[in-house]
Amino acid sequence: MKIDNSLPLEYSTEENQLKVLGFWIFLGAEVMLFGTLFATFFTLVHRTAGGPTGAELFEITPVLIETFLLLASSFTIGLGIHAMRLGRKNAMLAFFGITLLLGLGFLGVEIFDFVQYVHEGATIQTSGFTSILFSTLGTHGAHVSVGFFWGLFIMLQVKKRGLTPQNANKAFIFSLYWHFLDVVWIFIFSFIYLKGMM
């Protein structure tokens, strides 16, 4: 394995470079996936069939908390990658740990929110609107959940095997994924929640 020391660790081998580009392309596919969900949401948003509308369901407080937690986690994972590039393993692990805890907090609030919706009579079976609402939020939430375990496994590997080119590559790609989920959330926050509350 040839290691090019002039590049950051996560780009230092040919295999690493392939993986970063491959993941960017995969994120392109993810954009289409969420794009399809959003397109469907805009199509079905007013099809509430007598069930609750967005304006009736959405509460600003939990949504703001979710937004705050997820945006903060995007910042901390950036710090984690910065620490990784400086070769500070413990700092990196700490920032990754904070990131995942923030992600867990986000999921907690989201589940709490879902329970509220169900109490107000909006289940996934209620109407076209609630079907796509739960599906879009749920797809994002499922991504965060998968990301939680993925990030956890990377932390364990960094702890055990150190900051190798492979681990740095995995951590960097994971950070791309995490930032992407944040971008998706900004769209959810703006176009599903804020627009829905107006």
Partner: peptide, 29 residues
């Protein structure tokens, strides 16, 4: 292909979990 992924997932949910993406009632389209 991601568009197909989503469409098939919605179709599956309509058939197995009673959602209303493509149904003709309850706001489906």
């Amino acid at each position: 292909f991601p568009v197909l992924t989503v469409a098939l997932a919605m179709g599956t949910m309509d058939r197995l979990f009673g959602t209303h993406f493509f149904s003709t009632d309850a706001g489906g389209l």
